[in-house]
Simulated assay, not measured.
Amino acid sequence: MATIRQRNGHWQCIIKRKGYPTLSKTFELRKDAERWGRQQERAIDAGQWMDRTEAEQTTLGDLLKRYSLEVSSKKRGADVEMIRIEALRRSKLALFSVAGVTSQRLAEWRDQRLEEVSGSTVSRELTLISHVFSVAIREWGFALQNNPVSLIRKPAFEKPRDRVLTEEQRLALLTSVGRCRNHWIRPVVVFALETAARRGEILSLRWDDIDMVRKVAKVSGKTGCRNIPLSPTCISLLKSLPRSHEGRVFPVTAETLKQAYKRAVDRSGIEDFTFHDLRHDALTRLAKMGFNILELRTISGHATANMLQRYVSIDAGDLAGRLAGQKISREGQNLRRVR
């Protein structure tokens, strides 16, 4: 039976059961203390009681910090995820205790966040928060009945971007990045345009990963490791670069690259062209050069053809031109046969 006593103007509920730690909690009102006592005793009787002390005393911000140190730091492309975590830690949601991050609070945060950024961004943030809770429950012993993210609706991802540069825009962009104060920005952009590699893959590339003889580079990213071919432009670029003491091919941080690239795009007069759009542009150009699906997947690292299709823009006008060319070729063959 729970013991209720008044102490220093507050009401304290104490529960002592054999085989369980002594439970106590203080409330402003006696009825709240009695209600809490009944809840704890029912959970003990049903064998469902869990020690929620750590979940109640740890904020989501603290949990995110632990996750970044113990989990994110061991991932490929950790820099990008850590930036996202730091942004989440600055949000009001991070001030709540882990136990206090309910599905209702998450839904309110989601709706407010949707007024600031795209649905795709919010969905990625919720996926990250969900994995943080999963690790906390399964591996760190946080006593939570469920993962609150699993109880709310995630925003739908927006329509895949379809941004490809014209030759004039590509030249304008390369000229603009060439004027960046940080002289590593242009080589990174050129490498991205030539290889369709992701930003994290490029920034984590080391000189030991480059095989100048075979003209391939071993990149590591969210889909694992793979070898990508290096064009003559890439080979020439790599030969011209100085070697950094730390061994990285492009010794620049993700945040520095992000800010410098954004300013360069603004200077070039190109609207709405992100760094990730370079991957889209590169794969589209490779497809036009005649690379087939299997070859493109080897280069891009996509698991399926459907995922690859989001990154390749096929122009119907180009297809019409190819059909016309095939028709003319067939007619020429027929004429030769007649003669």
Rank of each mutant, 00 (worst) to 15 (best):
A287C: 07
M307S: 07
T253A: 06
I293P: 00
A287F: 11
I293D: 06
A192H: 04
I235T: 11
R297Y: 00
T298D: 08
K239F: 04
T253R: 12
D266Y: 05
E246M: 06
L283C: 04
T256R: 11
L230D: 04
T256D: 13
F291C: 10
I314K: 09
A196T: 04
R206T: 15
I210A: 05
T253G: 10
V219D: 05
H245Y: 02
P242V: 06
L203A: 11
S220T: 15
A264Q: 05
K222S: 11
L294S: 12
M212S: 13
G200A: 09
L205F: 08
C234I: 03
M289H: 13
K258E: 13
T304F: 09
I314Y: 03
N292I: 00
D315G: 00
M289K: 15
G221E: 13
S231E: 02
H245M: 02
L203S: 12
L308W: 03
F273R: 06
S300A: 15
K288C: 02
D315M: 01
A197V: 11
Q259Y: 14
L230H: 06
G269I: 08
N306G: 00
L237W: 01
R263Y: 12
L237I: 06
R279Y: 05
S240W: 06
L237P: 03
E295F: 00
A196C: 12
R243C: 00
R243H: 14
C234V: 09
T253H: 07
Y261S: 03
V249W: 11
T256V: 05
I293G: 00
K258A: 10
R248A: 07
S236L: 07
N306E: 14
S220Q: 13
V190I: 15
D272N: 15
L308R: 07
I202E: 13
L238H: 05
F273C: 02
N182Y: 01
M212R: 14
I202P: 12
V219H: 09
L230P: 08
T298M: 13
L193T: 03
S236D: 12
P251H: 09
K288G: 10
A303P: 01
I202A: 07
Q259F: 10
L286T: 01
R214Y: 11
I293S: 00
K215C: 13
W207K: 05
I299N: 09
D209E: 09
R198N: 06
T284N: 01
D315A: 11
I299V: 15
C234H: 02
